[in-house]
């Protein structure tokens, strides 16, 4: 049962559909931003979620954070079912899960100074003792290397650089000692020069606190550095789940392969050569294609199968799942 105890979070068949109404009241279907996502996350494990823009990554993050109430499926955290959370458990859950957003400036209230920004989560979560608040605020700032602390306490977000802002966001996310950090493209809006710094910081924090991390990105080049496992998302579904090495070196799903081909090659000679991103348009999330959602863009599509029936998860290798008919066992 050691394996089971080690499980931090699990999602089973998670669905987040946004109803669409015509003229404000006539129901007209739904945007299926997250549509049947299942995964497990172990303690201290970093999982990357990759996929192209609009595939539902942020929606997945918000659903896991209980900002959206899922329209189907279930989330369990440390063995408790989120649907059955009492309001006390919900508060506990919010302490246990930290959130790092994409746009650091937008993520900080512009009218609060650093001190206030870090104090808010403490106040909200019942840390009333002034002294304890101060200590935790200072510890948090030191942890994200916003030092000397005194120089930053009175500053407002617009007085900080992008990198410093993101450090502050991270400090806020970990100030309640969470067990899980959900980072939604934490570096994509930062200057290239500070990206590595921030990723290293996240990495260090993850190790220091044995945090589970859900790292959302569409930049596969940073994934190897940061995470243990990768989940590839396409049109609201996870199409491939595997350890980093296995997936990057030997991808199975045609979509993953196409994604990997789209990464710029560090070799200067090859950088010039044109590498196609997966051809065709991303599918509509309101009327997703039948069968495998990737089949209209897939060069290996099997006529009569892929467009008819949705592929289940096959396991071509140990610990490597892929939802593609190419890997069906015959």
């Amino acid at each position: 049962m050691a394996e089971h105890n080690n499980r931090l979070m699990a999602a089973r068949d998670l669905q987040m559909w946004f109803p669409v109404r015509r003229w404000g009241f006539i129901p007209a279907g739904a945007v299926r931003a997250v549509d049947g996502v299942s995964f497990e996350l172990r303690r201290g494990e970093a999982v990357a979620v990759v996929g192209e823009s609009g595939c539902g990554k942020s929606t997945l993050a918000r659903t896991l954070l209980a900002i959206h109430t899922p329209t189907g499926g279930r989330i369990t955290f440390e063995g408790r079912d989120m649907e059955q959370f009492t309001s006390r458990e919900m508060r506990w859950y919010r302490r246990r899960v930290g959130y790092v957003q994409q746009d650091p400036y937008g993520a900080l209230p512009p009218f609060m100074n650093v001190h206030r920004i870090l104090r808010e989560p403490l106040i909200v979560n019942g840390v009333r003792d002034r002294q304890e608040q101060e200590e935790r605020i200072r510890d948090g700032l030191r942890e994200v290397r916003l030092v000397p602390v005194e120089d930053f306490l009175d500053k407002f977000p617009h007085m900080l650089s992008g990198g410093q802002q993101q450090r502050l966001v991270i400090a806020r996310a970990i100030i309640l000692n969470p067990g899980l950090l959900i980072a939604d493209e934490p570096v994509s809006m930062l200057d290239a020069s500070v990206r590595v710094e921030i990723l290293k910081l996240l990495r260090r924090i993850q190790d220091a606190h044995n945090l589970g991390v859900c790292y959302i990105t569409h930049d596969l080049s940073t994934v190897r550095y940061f995470s243990h496992r990768i989940m590839v998302m396409y049109a609201g579904k996870l199409v491939e789940k595997a350890p980093v090495g296995g997936l990057l070196d030997d991808p199975c799903h045609p979509y993953t392969r196409a994604l990997l081909r789209a990464i710029p090659d560090p070799e200067p000679e090859n950088a010039r050569t044109y590498r196609p991103v997966p051809g065709g348009e991303p599918p509509s999330l309101m009327n997703p294609p039948s069968g495998c959602r990737f089949h209209p863009r897939c060069e290996y599509a099997i006529a009569g199968l892929c467009e008819v029936e949705e592929p289940p998860h096959f396991v071509p290798r140990a610990d490597h799942e892929v939802a593609c008919w190419l890997f069906r066992e015959e």
Binding site: Q101, G106, L108, P109, N125
Partner: peptide
């Protein structure tokens, strides 16, 4: 829909607090 309000919800700020501490100060 500002991200900072989403963040506030994620760390558990209630409706009352969000209206008076996050929404209103922004337009003061």
């Amino acid at each position: 829909n500002a991200p900072y309000i989403e963040a506030a919800r994620a760390y558990g700020a209630g409706n009352f607090r969000i209206v008076f501490r996050y929404l209103i100060p922004r337009v003061i």
